[in-house]
Nucleic acid binder design. Sequence first.
DNA 1: ATGGTTGCTTAGCAA
Length: 256
Amino acid sequence: MRLATWNVNSIRARKERVLAWMAAHRPDVLCIQEIKVTEEAFPSADFAAFGYRVVVAGQRTYNGVAILSRIACQDVVRRFDDGEDEAEARFLAATVGQVRIVCVYVPNGQAIGSEKFSYKLAWVRRLRRYLERHHTPQDLLALCGDFNVAPEPRDVHDPNAWADTVLFHPEARAVFHELCAWGLLDTVRLHHQESGLYSWWDYRQLAFPKNHGLRIDHILVTAPLAARCTTAEIDRNARKGQGASDHAPVIAEFAL
DNA sequence: ATGGTTGCTTAGCAA
């Protein structure tokens, strides 16, 4: 099984690029984030014509996530159902074959000390509690998406400069590591140990050509799935050229 | 210290 995740930064702006990328890489499952459309406005027919089913947790203007899969998804869930606010479409879970796929767009947090940063930290804690309620670390489960957190210094081009920002603040890293401590492994780090592997580069200041990036998009898997993970890569080629998303896709393969 | 870019929506917000 080939599984990918990609923050596409608007599916309407990126549709042709996403379709071309899928044609080249043929993922069995592609989780996408920041689709910025409602379910009704998602261009599902274009992906159906391409051989993919689409399930959407949509929202107008902001946020929104979807799972595209070659075989039909089952048991689709769009909410934490934990009694807290669910106004923002950031969570989608579905079963594809033997694997439970969870697609997330973690809040960015905007600025340290802001309400949005508190919301981000709380949201990641809610995600961990969702996993605790519905799954065990023995499940075949993949948690994919834009986590808006670079886990370690080697995941940031200039860790000192980014330490006071929402993407690499100690508190953001701490909730991310608490999430992983439930029983998740970082697929890219199963296969690659070097620094300089990034999945996001700011549109500004020539960040991409200078490789001033951060690794904030992840495919996290439970131990039984990690044992079957044969490769995991970031496709930085997808970030190149005019009309690219500011994120690159992450792709992992599993012997399933 | 500020601004730099992109997308959505239509001047300003979010990232």
